[in-house]
Simulated scan of single mutants.
Amino acid sequence: MRVEIWSDIACPWCYIGKARFEKGLAEFAHRDGVEVVHRSFELDPSLTGGKTGPVIDMLAAKYGRSLAEARSMEEHVASNARSEGLGYLVDGRDYGSTFAIHRLLHLAKDRGRQSELLDLVYRVNFAEERSVYDRETLVGLAVEAGLDEAEARGVLDGDTYAEEVRADQREAAALGANGVPFFVFDRRIGVSGGQPAEVFTQALEQAWESRPVTTLTPVGGASADAEVCDTDGSCVAPGAGDRP
């Protein structure tokens, strides 16, 4: 079974939702049969690569709130994060374009290191006084996640994986996602938001139990003595063993 998660590293509920999903997955009996794929979603695709600024200031301007009110909003999110055992800094964090980060996450996916890089990027963005919008910091995180430095720099210096990021975003729109995190279970069940862990466990169980069952019906008079090749490499015609 495949679970696809659309998220943006600038989204605190994606950070929290990932932790809650993983707790829900840990309680799922068939967790070893679940493939998790992280997909790209930019909350603000209009941002340019070099524009950054303080998160509190951005929230105040975006929602028409005072700086104190914006900080209170962040304190509420921080409380939720900390209840999941996650670090969260209210002050001192930046915002910026996440497009390059998403491209790098696609490289990590191809190299089997996507979850490792995503965890590092989330941690630095929300819990450390470093900026993931700084190119050298991002390269360092890629290397820490197990990626080749030269390959990571090559992605950031060009436009590799740009179309893959945009394709993820088009797919999210086609599925009706207008916010993140957005979880899709086997393309049949959708869960929106950073839900409690038990909600994810329930969704996993529902998706698992409702999987289409494929049964094979013999056709054309098929019989047990038709020509076959066994797993040991022997190919014997019916009745051949009885022939002199």
Rank of each mutant, 00 (worst) to 15 (best):
L118E: 15
L120M: 10
E128C: 09
V77Y: 08
G64V: 03
T137D: 13
R71M: 12
V121Q: 12
R71I: 10
M73V: 06
E69Y: 01
F99L: 13
E129A: 09
L118M: 15
I101S: 11
V77C: 10
A100L: 12
Y88V: 01
A61H: 13
H106P: 08
E144C: 07
E84Y: 02
L59W: 08
S66R: 06
E144D: 15
R103L: 10
A78E: 03
Y88M: 06
G87Y: 10
I101K: 01
Q114R: 12
Y63V: 09
K62T: 10
A100Y: 10
V90L: 11
S72H: 14
A142P: 14
E136M: 03
I101V: 15
A60H: 14
A68M: 09
G64Y: 05
E144H: 06
R130M: 07
R93L: 07
V121N: 00
L105P: 02
R71Y: 08
R135I: 07
R103A: 08
K109F: 03
Y95K: 00
R93Y: 03
L107I: 04
S97L: 04
D110R: 04
V77N: 10
L117I: 02
L138R: 00
S79A: 13
A78V: 02
S72C: 09
R82Q: 13
A81Y: 03
R71N: 11
R135V: 10
G146A: 00
E116L: 02
Y88C: 06
Y122C: 01
A70E: 15
A70V: 08
T98I: 05
G85K: 07
A68H: 09
V77G: 12
A108I: 02
N125Y: 12
S131N: 11
Y95D: 00
E136F: 02
E129L: 04
V124M: 11
R113H: 00
L107Y: 08
R71L: 12
H102A: 11
S131E: 14
Y95V: 02
S115A: 14
E74R: 14
A61C: 08
L118V: 12
G85H: 10
L138S: 08
G140R: 03
H102G: 08
R130T: 05
E136K: 05
A142M: 14
Y133A: 00
L138N: 08
I101L: 14
Y122N: 14
R93V: 04
A61V: 09
V90D: 12
E136T: 03
L67A: 13
L138I: 01
E75G: 04
G146M: 01
Y63I: 08
G85V: 00
V143R: 02
E75M: 12
L118Q: 15
